[in-house]
Design a protein around this nucleic acid. Structure first.
Length: 471
DNA sequence: TGAAATGTTGGGGCG
DNA sequence: ACGCCCCAACATTTC
């Protein structure tokens, strides 16, 4: 039993179903909760009004209010996490520091350093699995190695799943440190060097739980509706899973509560998340280069001007432009649109997937290295169990399937709103008179297509087939 | 978690 | 009535 301990939260911004907090409040009399804004990460962000900082800030404020209600408070620091945690451990004279493990390369290095220095200072370092259901080492193939294909991985994952894997880790609220012996003052956004922005999605663990509750009304139809970008029937929980304002175990428990194909399908998506975290942990080189080594020397011939057009949603392909504009405006994009836009960048514009990956990393509220990298490697056919290189989406057909009435396109490309029926998916077939009636003259109000899909498809096939054969 | 190209089949128009 | 052609509609193969 420890007298006092610190629980360092990072991407697990909640006080319920929290492994490290549950362990800490069981093992120590007094537990102080701390969050450190990493100065290096914050300073590297390109946008001073980055929505993620507002989301983080508001989520932390909610935790602080909750802790104050219990007589404690959230300690929020701004600086180098290694130094801040060490300094705080010393100042509060704690006997142990608890945290939930994070398998991203940067976090692994940081946490190893904190661990080393704590032990050196005579403080126990205790870390736990919380962010995923299974770590990379827990799901292995017959020869004891990591899976490289999703389906067998997911079978092994499901076969291994038992009740303790999804247990609800409840912290003991009696053990939160009352009357902290340090002055605790939350920095303002301004102190951090940021301005407030609309986080688009309700932040904080309370909103996350409400969202999960609401999603359960639609979970049975998830299999049917998930690819419809106009319906909004996905869980919308990616942002909360990324920041840990909801626990992955709570999500799996929700899926298990419904014996339907929809819930089953959603569980598969949650397994994809574990799969990509496993891939990142086992093959950290994917951060830099393609998982499939035969593509590592590939030179993508696309043009910078096309990349610009893609970023701002001016490609002349309505579904692509709508998706890209939605990303910039809200910080979120439907998963199906991520595939369509990623496929378009790589297979139609022949641009290096890493440029698209970086653009998503900048704008996505739910940006997660493992999932974002996995998704891009999948779409570009470079990854583990990726889409085969010859499976190329036709953006116009995808548009008709995922947004049949064109409602999503009309929302984000209002200049196209006047086109009726299927013309919304491909307005370039409209005569000049039809364009005038629709109030949108192509080439003036909306761009002509910057490339021809049929032509680019052939170029992509030739490029990737050659590489596939010759390495 | 495709789409295009190519192959096959069978109904109907026609001489 | 019959063979022939056309071409959807569907199936299979290929990228």
């Amino acid at each position: 039993m420890f007298g006092s301990a610190l629980c360092w939260i990072r991407r697990d911004l909640r006080l319920v179903d929290h492994r490290a907090l549950a362990e800490a409040t069981q093992a120590a009399e007094r537990v102080a909760v701390v969050f450190v804004f990493d100065k290096v990460i914050l300073d590297a962000l390109q946008d001073r009004d980055d929505r993620r900082i507002s989301f983080l800030f508001d989520s932390l404020s909610e935790l602080d209010a909750e802790l104050r209600r219990l007589g404690s408070a959230l300690i929020v620091q701004h600086g180098d996490p290694v130094e801040e945690i060490l300094r705080l451990a010393e100042e509060l004279k704690v006997e142990a520091v608890f945290w939930n493990a994070d398998a991203e390369p940067y976090a692994l290095k940081r946490d190893a350093e904190v661990h080393r220095r704590l032990v050196q200072a005579g403080v126990a370092a205790k870390h736990y699995k919380d962010h995923v259901i299974f770590t990379a080492r827990e799901v292995r193939n017959q020869s004891g190695g990591p899976f490289r294909v999703f389906t067998p991985y997911s079978k092994a994952w499901r076969a291994r799943l038992t009740e303790p894997d999804v247990q609800d880790f409840s912290p003991n609220p009696e053990r939160f440190w009352r009357d902290l012996p340090v002055t605790v003052q939350m920095p303002t956004l301004n102190d951090l060097g940021f301005e407030r922005s609309d986080p688009w999605l309700e932040p904080g663990p309370r909103a996350a739980q409400e969202r999960l509750n609401r999603f359960q009304d639609h979970i049975d139809g998830y299999g049917q509706n998930r690819d419809r970008v106009d319906l909004g029937r996905t869980s919308g929980l990616s942002v909360h899973l990324r920041h840990g304002t909801i626990s992955i175990r709570a999500c799996v428990r929700a899926a298990q509560a419904h014996a339907t194909t929809g819930a089953e399908k959603w569980l598969s998506e949650l397994i994809w998340r574990d799969f990509y975290h496993m891939i990142l942990e086992e093959f950290p080189q994917v951060v830099e280069r393609p998982f499939r080594s035969e593509y590592q020397q590939l030179k993508w011939p696309g043009k910078p001007a096309h990349f610009e057009a893609w970023c701002i949603g001016q490609t002349g392909y309505p579904i692509v432009d709508a998706g890209m504009r939605c990303l910039r405006a809200t910080g979120w994009m439907h998963n199906r649109l991520r595939m369509i836009t990623a496929m378009f960048l790589t297979k139609d514009l022949l641009i290096d997937y890493r440029l698209g990956e970086a653009h998503f990393a900048r704008w996505l509220l739910d940006f997660d290295l493992a999932s974002n990298n996995g998704g891009w490697q999948w779409s570009s056919s470079m990854g583990a169990d990726a889409q085969p290189y010859f499976r190329i989406f036709n953006p116009v057909l995808q548009s008709a399937k995922t947004d049949p009435d064109g409602e999503f396109i009309r929302q984000w490309c209002p200049e196209l709103a006047g086109f009726a029926g299927d013309q919304i998916h491909w307005p370039h077939g409209a005569s000049l008179m039809e364009q005038q009636i629709a109030g949108c003259v192509l080439g003036a109000d909306y761009p002509h297509p910057i490339v021809d899909h049929a032509v680019q498809r052939q170029l992509a096939l030739a490029l990737l087939e050659r590489t596939d054969r010759n390495g």
